[in-house]
C-alpha cells in the first residue's frame, strides 16, 4: 500500500523540479520534422543567398557571369583596400568602435551598479527618462549635434562619432547592465564586506568576474552599433581620411559607374567583423533577455 502511494509522489516531485528546458525534457512534444525543416530551409535560403551573392561578386573576375566564384580572384579586395581607401576606413571604424565599446561598458557598469544596488531619490525619474531616450530619432539629432560639435571643435574628428554613438547606445546598455548586476546575489558582495572589503574591492573581486557574460553582450552591442552607424559619420566627418566604412561604402554606391566587384569586396570587409562578433554573442543575447523576463 505504501509503495503504491509513494511511487506517484516521487514522479511528481521530479516533474516539478525539472528545469523548463526542452533539451532536457524527456517527453516533450516534438513537432513533425517537416514542419521544422521546410520553413527553416526556406528562411535560410532567404538569409544566405544575399550573403552568397555579395561574396560571389567579390571573388569572381569582373565581367564573369558564373554563379560559383571560379576562377577565383582577390583583385577586388586589393582594389578597395588600397585604391578606394578601405585600409584607412577600416582603421577609423575600428578605432571609433573600440572607444565607443570602452566608454559604453565603463559608464554602464557605473550607472548599472547604482541602479541595481541603491535606492535613491530620483531613481524612478531617471528610469523614465532613460526609456524615453529610446524614442529619440538619430536623424533628428543631426542638426543640433552638428552645432554642438562645431562649437566645441569636434567636427571632422573621430571623437564626435565616439561621443554620439556612446550617448545613443548608453541608455539601453545601462538598463541591461543593471539587469545583469541585479541577477548576482547581493549576499556574495556582503560576504566580501564582512571580510573587510570596501564597495569597490567587493565589486572588483566578486561581482565583476560573474558579470562576464553581461559585459560581453553589452560591449558587443556597443561595438556593432558603432561599427554600423552611418548618418552621424556622414554628417560629422568631411575629409576622406576620416571616413568610416559605411560612409566609404555610401560614396561608392553613389558613383556614376559603380565597380560592383570592388563594392562587393568593400561590403564583405564591412560585414565580416560584425557577423563574427554577433555569432559569438547571440547565445548570450537570448539567455540575457530570457533571464530578464524571468526576473521582471
Amino acid at each position: 500500500m505504501t509503495t503504491l502511494v509513494e511511487a506517484p509522489a516521487a514522479s511528481e516531485r521530479t516533474t516539478v523540479n525539472r528545469p523548463p528546458s526542452r533539451r532536457t525534457d524527456p517527453n516533450h512534444r516534438r513537432a513533425p520534422r517537416w514542419m521544422i525543416y521546410t520553413p527553416l530551409a526556406l528562411y535560410l535560403l532567404f538569409t544566405l543567398v544575399p550573403f552568397y551573392w555579395i561574396l560571389l561578386f567579390s571573388l569572381r573576375p569582373a565581367g564573369s557571369t558564373s554563379v560559383i566564384p571560379w576562377p577565383i580572384t582577390f583583385e577586388h579586395y586589393k582594389t578597395v583596400w588600397d585604391g578606394a581607401g578601405f585600409a584607412v576606413f577600416f582603421k577609423n571604424s575600428v578605432v571609433i568602435a573600440l572607444f565607443t565599446l570602452f566608454g559604453t561598458t565603463i559608464l554602464s557598469l557605473l550607472g548599472g551598479y547604482a541602479l541595481a544596488r541603491f535606492r535613491f531619490r530620483g531613481r524612478g525619474a531617471f528610469m523614465v527618462m532613460t526609456l524615453c531616450t529610446q524614442f529619440i530619432p538619430g536623424a533628428m539629432m543631426l542638426i543640433p549635434l552638428f552645432d554642438i560639435f562645431r562649437t566645441i571643435g569636434l567636427i571632422n574628428t573621430p571623437w564626435s562619432i565616439v561621443v554620439a554613438d556612446t550617448v545613443f547606445g548608453l541608455p539601453l546598455s545601462l538598463i541591461m547592465m543593471a539587469g545583469f548586476i541585479r541577477n548576482i546575489p547581493i549576499e556574495l558582495e556582503e560576504a566580501s564586506w564582512v571580510d573587510g572589503c570596501g564597495r569597490l574591492r567587493g565589486f572588483l573581486t566578486v561581482v565583476l568576474p560573474l558579470l562576464r557574460p553581461g559585459m560581453v553582450a553589452i560591449s558587443s552591442f556597443a561595438f556593432i552599433g558603432s561599427w554600423n552607424n552611418f548618418l552621424f559619420a556622414l554628417m560629422f566627418l568631411n575629409d576622406q581620411d576620416q571616413f568610416t566604412i559605411p560612409v566609404g561604402l555610401s560614396y561608392m554606391l553613389g558613383e556614376y559607374s559603380v565597380d560592383f566587384g570592388a563594392l562587393a569586396a568593400g561590403g564583405v570587409v564591412a560585414v565580416v567583423p560584425v557577423v563574427l562578433v554577433f555569432a559569438y554573442v547571440q547565445k548570450f543575447l537570448v539567455q540575457g533577455l530570457s533571464a530578464g523576463a524571468v526576473k521582471g
Partner: peptide, 30 residues
Amino acid sequence: ETFVGRSLARSLVFSPWAVAGVLTTTIWLL
C-alpha cells in the same frame, strides 16, 4: 523546437540583424 543543427541554424538566421543599413543596401543593390 529541438532539432539537429539548431544552434548553427540560430546563428545563421539571426546574423542579418548585425548588418548595417548601408551594407544591406550594398548587398541588395547587387
